[in-house]
């Protein structure tokens, strides 16, 4: 790893180039740039998860760590290029003082030429991701409503500000549930007449899941508060009984389908790395998310 203090973007570019040619890694193809915006407190975990995701998506990771304050504007960089710790290259940038308000000016020259850009806010997300200067550089903008103090309120803000290319890790977290529900309905089953989603009180994934079920099935969906962790159950009411997935402990779930014996399914809460991997697999707008997000405010309140 290389440390550059009080530096410039030009010097950083030059250092990356030199380091790569020293390691003979000039020709390693980078398929995208991932901009990770994080606070000092979260940056280590976030960059770690991002570099783990680079094993599947060789990419340049630009860690943007704003350090606003009264200090002089100063740019510090830590660079580790491909080859040392994995296929990705990580450039952690600390923007001190007034520079903290000008993140895009620092990021722009460091993007991989002609490759897609993804931005991920690993701490607080801007109110409108698409209008954020870093968000404007990106084709895909990843937020995580669960980080906010009032997660469901945050989701509501996202819903009003949605632009194609936005996505939220709260939605990503529903994928295994949705996959299992879809698989359950692959079997012959009676007509679904209603649904219930159980989750911890503030969980932002639950309204998205409920909205998705509502829009796909066209049936009323009720929200129920549970003690968590996260999503704990989904019930689909049918004429012959409930199709249910219950996960009381955050790891193992029980799937019950009328007419079939109950079975146990591993349904772990996934790590950030796995969520990122899923996000980076496709970079086009997620229309299904858009639809669920738009409907989600109806499901913010837990039912009686």
């Amino acid at each position: 790893m290389m440390r550059l203090e009080d530096t410039t973007v030009a010097a950083i570019s030059e250092a990356i180039r030199e380091e790569k040619s020293r390691k003979g890694a000039i020709a390693v193809g980078m398929v995208l740039t991932l901009i990770v915006v994080a606070d000092e407190a979260d940056q280590a975990d976030a960059l770690h998860a991002a570099s783990a995701a680079a094993s599947e998506h060789p990419m340049r990771i630009l860690g943007i760590i704003p350090r606003p304050g009264r200090t002089e504007a100063q740019l510090d960089a830590e660079i580790s290029v491909a080859g040392a710790d994995g296929p990705g290259e990580v450039i952690a940038l600390r923007l001190r003082g007034a520079m903290a308000a000008h993140t895009a000016s620092v990021a722009l020259p460091l993007l991989v030429p002609d490759a897609p850009v993804v931005v991920w806010w690993a701490s607080d997300a801007p109110k409108s991701p698409v209008k954020d200067p870093l968000g404007q550089l990106a084709r895909r903008r990843i937020t995580d409503a669960s980080l906010a103090g009032r997660s469901r309120a945050e989701l509501q803000v996202h819903a009003t500000q949605y632009a194609p290319g936005d996505t939220d890790l709260a939605w990503t977290r529903t994928t295994p549930w949705r996959a299992l529900l879809a698989a359950a309905l692959d079997r012959p089953h009676a007509r679904v007449t209603g649904a219930e989603v159980h989750a911890s009180r503030s969980n932002p994934s639950a309204p998205l899941l409920a909205a998705w079920l509502h829009s796909c099935l066209g049936v009323p969906v009720t929200m129920r508060a549970s003690r968590g962790p996260g999503l704990t159950a989904v019930h689909l009411h049918t004429d012959t009984g409930d199709i249910s997935i219950t996960r009381p402990d955050g790891t193992k779930a029980i799937l019950q389908v009328p007419g079939y014996p109950a079975s146990e399914v591993a349904l772990r809460r996934r790590e950030t790395r796995d969520l990122l991997l899923e996000e980076l697999r496709r970079l086009d707008p997620d229309e299904v998310y858009a639809q669920a997000l738009a409907l989600s405010p109806q499901f913010h309140a837990d039912g009686p």
């Binding site: 990503t172 994928t175 949705r178 996959a179 299992l180 529900l181 879809a182 698989a183 309905l185 692959d186 079997r187 012959p188 679904v192 079920l213 796909c216 099935l217 066209g218 079939y260 899923e278 496709r282 997620d286 229309e287 299904v288």
Partner: peptide, 20 residues
Amino acid sequence: MTNPLRDPRDRRLPRIAGPC
């Protein structure tokens, strides 16, 4: 019968084999 939860635009959902 088509599965209402399977939307061709939904590229996240993996296909899970049926019971077997």
